[in-house]
Design a protein around this nucleic acid. Structure first.
Lengths: 236, 236
DNA sequence: CAGGCAGTTTGCGATAGCGCAAAACGGGCC
DNA sequence: GGCCCGTTTTGCGCTATCGCAAACTGCCTG
């Protein structure tokens, strides 16, 4: 297994407050692995045996109901951790993680966690902050689902994706991994049909350009306006 | 200010792994305060200056949109922490906390947090677990909002409240604090009208007994069945 | 004990978005 | 280069739920 250069990960939030010379010791406990596009990293309900740090690629975390419906919990971008079941005291993974692009991850065995946070308390504090940030995002999402129409929610979702994983083009911002109408529906609590209709509408207005698992925001500013418009068209 | 008996809080998850003799030192940094029913403890957006542990009563955490709509983030039960903005790296409170019943809380200044987790790393680990648990609850809530009808969501919400803060009566389980139709609507992403209709229906079937800010689950088992029924009436 | 008010109930349209079905499309693979 | 399959588009009826309005009720207050 190739050794990971500490300089690649030293600046990540997870390791803030950790001395560079300690980093090597931390990385020694991890192994790295490559997951090809569309391969599963772990399955919801499985025994949680490891936790992960994404180095390259993109990972989708999704939760499935007993009846088979799915929602996308989040997309993981490079530099972010995922599969932290151990840290939050869960014995099983609460979601399924799948690589949506060829991805490279660092993998620590769960057994390393207690030792890690004992020797480097900053890691516990950093993780608390990222989990807290995710909690706030979840609350925001709940707020949106409770108060906004589907079109606004889709607008917000795309803007968030663009910010997190957007690649700047001269004619807009492209979401940097394959994402389907269905995926967006599962992020916003609607159906792929409705998403498709919305994107078609936007496309004809020149706001986006999209195709098979590909979306480019051509006019992010107008989409921001859409996202903030209230149901009554901001008549107030 | 009255001194808090360590034996009252020693068993709380927050302090698990903390030696009893250290507990007094921790409590010495806190002050206690009483909030009468319907008084605000902190407001969304205000500078986060303290974090809280609820001793008695019940607290509602709610988030408000720019346009004034609210959702209930959660109800805090005795023994739970709230207002952890500092711990999760937020400078401002992301929600408003209001006592829904006469309540007693312990209050630590944020400045105590770094010292606390440095001296007692178990507290950071414990907090990480509770925040993680809240994150999972949020995801469950998002899943429900995405896949279930309003009636199922209301059923789930009431069952959760009953489990968290239910008082057993001989003729059912009563939710142990004042809660309105509006509150339930704000927990489930619907309107008070729809909640009222649903509860009226249940009442006529003898599933619940309810009135002004008061709900008793008369037949929790049947409500569980309702909660799990799929949209097509479980025809499969 | 009488108001008054917050909370609740209920009726009645209006509609956003779902669900189903079918056709069109696009791209990768052989 | 053509075929096949997953994705996307689009039409159409349906309904769960909203939104508004109005009446009702039970507490708490003065």
């Amino acid at each position: 297994m190739a050794k990971v250069d500490t300089s690649l990960v030293a600046h990540l939030p997870l390791f803030s407050g950790v001395k560079p010379e300690d980093l090597e010791e931390i990385l020694r406990e991890a192994r790295s692995a490559r997951y090809p596009r569309n391969s599963a990293i772990f399955e919801q309900g499985a025994d949680a045996q490891s936790f992960f740090l994404l180095l390259h690629g993109h990972v989708r975390a999704a939760k499935t109901t007993p009846t088979g419906e799915q929602i996308v919990v989040r997309y993981v971008a490079p530099g972010e951790t995922f599969g932290l079941a151990m840290a939050i005291g869960a014995a099983h993974y609460p979601a399924t993680a799948m690589a949506v692009d060829d991805s490279v991850v660092l993998i620590w065995p769960n057994s390393a966690w207690p030792r890690l946070i004992e020797r480097f308390p900053a890691i516990a504090a950093n993780t608390l902050q990222t989990v807290g940030a995710r909690l706030q995002e979840s609350h925001t999402r709940i707020l949106e689902m409770s108060t906004q129409q589907v079109e606004q929610r889709v607008a917000h979702a795309l803007l968030r994706l663009a910010k997190q994983s957007g690649r700047k083009l001269d004619h807009g911002i492209e979401i940097d991994f394959p994402i389907s109408r269905q995926d967006i529906a599962q992020m916003t609590g609607t159906t792929l049909h409705t998403v498709s209709r919305i994107l078609s509408g936007w496309e004809s207005q020149g706001l986006v350009e999209s195709g098979r698992q590909r979306i480019i925001l051509r006019d992010p500013h107008k989409i921001v306006v859409l996202a903030e418009r209230t149901a009554d068209g901001n008549s107030a």
